[in-house]
Every structure is written in C-alpha cells, then in structure tokens.
Design a protein around this nucleic acid. Structure first.
Lengths: 227, 227
DNA sequence: TGAATAGTGTCTTTCAGACATTATTAC
DNA sequence: GTAATAATGTCTGAAAGACACTATTCA
C-alpha cells in the first residue's frame, strides 16, 4: 500500500442487516444481542466487519453475518444504502453498508437466546444509527411493495393468493381489491400454480397453491402502474 | 483503536460520482482525466477518498470531489449504491460509495482540459468498475424519471413546460402526451410560474416560464401513477 | 395573413375498484 | 342444506391518451 494513500483511504467499514419478517400480519425486525464493545449486551441489528480475505463482496459479507450471527440461510438480500459519518459509531468516522433481508417466519432459527423478533412499532432505542437504518428499510420495503413482487419473500415455498394478498395488505397497511390484485399478479407473470396442490382445512372451498417462478427467485417482478 | 479490530475493519474506501447532464436531448456523462496511478491519464468518473477530518459524511465527500476535481457547485446529488469487492481496484479489496449528480449543461465549468462531457452511448472503456456504476446510474435516472420530478435538475432556474417535457422525453426515450404531462405536473405541485416571465424569441406564442417551488429544490416530488 | 408553437377543451379508450355470482369444501 | 371462503364475471367511474381548437407571436 502506497504511503500517500494511507492518510485518507482507510476508514472503519462494516455491514449491517435489517432482517424483516411478518408475524401475525405485523412487520417485525430481528435483533441480536451484541457480544462485544461498543454497546456489549445491547440489542442491535446484526452486523459485522467485512472480511476482505473471504468475502467476494459486501453482499457476501452480509450473508456471512446472517449465517454466523443469526443462524440464518437463504434470505432474500438487497442493498439498502450506506450510512457514513463521524458520529454514528463512537470509535470514529465509519461506513456501514446496510442491507435489507426478507425472510418467512418459518425460516427463522428458533431457540436462540441471543436473537429476538420485535414488531417494528415496538422497537425501542437502538445503538449507533440503527434506528435510522431500520426506518430506511421500512420505507424501502413499503415503497417497493406498491409496485413489485418484493413481498413474496415473506412467504414460504408455496402459498395461496389470498395469503399473498394478506401479506401485501399487512405491509401496505390498507386493504386491496381482490380482482385488481389477481389481475396484477397475473400480469407480472410472477407465480405458477403448484399442480394439483390445494390448501384445504377450512369449511370452505380450498385455495390453489402457487410458487414463485424460477426467474423471479432472485429478481423482482415490476408492475407498470402499481399494486 | 483496539488491536482485534484491525484485522478486518479497514479497507480502501472512496466515493465516485456519476455526473449526468443533457446535451442536445442526449444524456451525457462527465469524465475527468486521472492525475495519478492507478490508471493515471485515463478518463474516469470523478472520485476520491473520504477525508475523515473534513467530511461530515460521504455525501459531503462527493460534493467536495465535485468541487475540487471538476470545479462544480450546487449539483443535485443522491446516493446511488455501494460497489465492493477484491477485483474492482487493482490495489485490492475496496469500497466505492457511488453518487449520482444531475446538473444543467450551463452550470458545467467550461474550458477545463481535464474534463470532458461524453454521450452515454459513446462512452468507451472505463477503468475500475466505472462502466457498471454508470449503467446503474442510468437505470436509476431513467426509472425515477417515470414517476418523479428528478429531471427538473437537468433544467436551469427557469424553464418552460415544453422544454421540461422535452427533457423527460429525452431521458425516457419516448414522446409523452402533452395534456397528460401538464396534468401530472399540475398534480405534483412541483412548479410555480415566474410572474410575468415569458420566453419569446420564436415566430409563435411565447411560453410561460416556471421555476421549481422551494419545497422541491432538494426533495423529489412523486406522482402516484407514473409520468 | 400565414406559419409556428403554446395552451386548453373534450371525446375516447383503458384500467382500477365495486359488486355480484358461481365453485367447493366441512358440518 | 348452510356457512364459509375461493375464484371469476361484469359493471362503473376515474384517469390517461388522442384530437381538435383557440391564443399569441413574428415575418
């Protein structure tokens, strides 16, 4: 490394992940108890340093943080924004590359004392600028849910259209027109029926089960005019 | 700084800025000639290191880079995304916080030999991953122009509605319905007429001049259903 | 007066939401 | 059959686009 670079080039860089899930129609966020200073013992967003020797990029760092600090695999991950400045971390000028993860409740590990799932409206104080990062994640998810397939990542492998509509309604905080919702889902060509699979169990007509088409497992589908 | 942090915490961090402007209805990008290695003498996106001792955050770093390396003040700036990995910079694992700047052509400095303005379709090879960053900026600008006031930042202080419509059409690459366009501009409450100011000069009816309302000089206005 | 573009009124088409109807299950 | 929800057909109102017409300037 050339000497003249060192003056400015290197600042503290970490990744922080806002893991969101739906619990009883409410957005919840996953917090972990910090193992070390600063803020040892405090509940915070899962985060960690970039490991230049093993991470292919910051997204890989975020995935590794989820795996090692929250025992979580396979969540949908997208970069949110990067938060910077001298005040956000007591150790000095720092950079946090924030990611947003969406995961079905069933895929969260259970029985971990260092993990908790909290309704987003009931999250109290958070260390660093994690409250601001959480707000940015919520704004992003609510905004993208208006015109994209993002919310399917809160569902498991197979789900019914009424279930998916309820997921959208929970995120957007408003009820949606059933006919319009189905028209839009159809237009996006996001889903395919699971052949012969119906979800019964109630005293009523069973619903067709659907799954996300392979093309949209990693990519989002967009609807031109919203919803 | 605690010893155990140093192993992972510090990686090379810079900001890169995609400065876009409209030249004769074409999106153009500002390139600067790099003064030093790596890629000394090569045309690239303006970029530089974060100065932890003087920058309030990465956005301030980006503004400083524009000021010092491109002689540019007052451009609209928004964070684009952060690009990371071991391969993007020959010096090793690095982080580039990319910003997107929009500026009217008239506000660009002239007569600078180390600056050039290139149509985005005619940009050749770029060093680092700057081609990818440029593509991300173009996708962002084109996408946001479909439903927001973003394109007004390509216009100067006062402009006519036909001029603004042409700016939108240039970015989106399609012609827009005049009546609908004006309805949308009206709904967004983005503009106010400059009292008594008309733009004449042609052999036809002169057009009313408008300016962006103060509330939207930094914030974007959004249109619910696009355009 | 004619050519050119600005600005507006109005009709048509398209799309989203409301409502109603049929389908299928458990009891 | 009755109750309950799934799934779909159809009508209505709102919004976007097409088109035409008026307004204002210069030559």
């Amino acid at each position: 490394m050339i000497q003249t670079e060192d003056k400015h080039a290197h600042v503290l860089v970490s990744v922080d992940v806002v893991v969101l899930t739906l619990v009883e129609r409410e957005l919840n966020v996953v917090l972990v108890q910090r193992a070390r200073a600063p803020f040892a013992g405090v509940w915070a967003l899962p985060g960690g340093y970039i490991h230049a020797d093993e991470d292919a990029d910051a997204k890989a760092s975020a995935a590794r943080v989820l795996r090692t600090k929250a025992g979580m695999e396979g969540a949908y991950l997208e970069q949110l924004a990067t938060f910077t400045g001298p005040a956000r971390d007591p150790r000095g000028w720092s950079v946090a590359i924030a990611y947003c993860a969406l995961i079905p409740l069933e895929s969260l590990p259970t029985q971990r004392a260092d993990l908790k799932v909290v309704p987003v409206h009931a999250v109290g104080q958070l260390p660093f600028d994690h409250a601001q990062i959480l707000q940015a994640a919520l704004a992003r998810v609510r905004s993208k849910s208006q015109y994209s397939s993002l919310p399917v990542h809160f569902c498991g492998d197979a789900f019914t259209l009424p279930q998916l509509q309820q997921v959208y309604e929970s995120i957007l905080g408003e009820s949606l027109n059933k006919v319009s919702f189905r028209r839009k889902m159809d237009e996006m060509q996001l889903l395919e029926p699971v052949p012969g699979a119906l979800q019964g169990g109630g005293a009523h007509r069973p619903a067709q089960l659907y799954r996300v088409r392979p093309a949209f497992r990693q990519e989002l589908a967009l609807s031109t005019r919203g919803l």
